[in-house]
């Protein structure tokens, strides 16, 4: 598997210690945007731990994904402050607008939408993060504009006029 070649140097940075399991998985997750099965098997061999342990850790923590994620990771905050200001509705709207639905990833692999337990921006609720950008003071109307901004085949300009323009403009 050619992509596994990229795992080798990643693994080489770490000592063969159990404590490095989570940091290694984080590196793989960052590099591949998911944890390929073969990579997990290699990690298990390297650290001399059973594959079951690696698999358990990989499925326990939220920042790991065993399935390929979309090109953009959309994290909609469901912290309490966001919830009381309608974060759940924003999430639902985001799932529809991206086409990700409840499965998490849109069929065109553009977006993965995940609810997230508090981004710590409660003062600006409701918020969501797309890749590295955080958007504040959302409502349902702003979602389409934000999604379109990241979608390669939709132009932000075609956003219906009524939808209020999102507060954030990033290229």
């Amino acid at each position: 598997m050619p992509e596994m070649e990229a795992v080798k140097p990643l693994l080489a940075q770490f000592k063969d210690e159990r404590a490095n399991l989570i940091p290694i998985l984080q590196e793989i997750q960052a590099a591949f945007s998911y944890l390929p099965e073969e990579a997990l098997r290699r990690v298990a061999r390297k650290l001399h731990v059973p594959v079951t342990d690696v698999y358990q850790v990989a499925t326990f923590y939220r920042c790991f994904s065993l399935k390929p994620r979309g090109r953009h990771l959309v994290q909609v905050c469901l912290g309490t402050a966001c919830h009381v200001r309608g974060g759940d509705l924003v999430l639902e709207r985001t799932q529809t607008e991206t086409g990700a639905g409840l499965s998490g990833t849109s069929p065109d692999l553009e977006f993965t939408v995940e609810p997230v337990r508090c981004l710590g921006c409660c003062g600006l609720a409701p918020v969501m993060r797309v890749d590295r950008d955080t958007f504040a003071h959302l409502d349902q109307a702003k979602v389409r504009g934000i999604v379109n901004r990241y979608h390669p085949r939709r132009k932000p300009a075609t956003v219906d006029k009524i939808a209020a323009s999102p507060e954030k403009v990033r290229s």
Binding site: E37, L40, P50, V51, T52, D53, V54, Y55, Q56, T59, F60
Partner: peptide, 25 residues
Amino acid sequence: AGAIGFSGRGKSRHVARPFGMTSEQ
């Protein structure tokens, strides 16, 4: 052997074999 283990957490936690396949162990 360590051929089976827990997977996931909370409500989606369950006993599983890694990757849903019988392992070498």
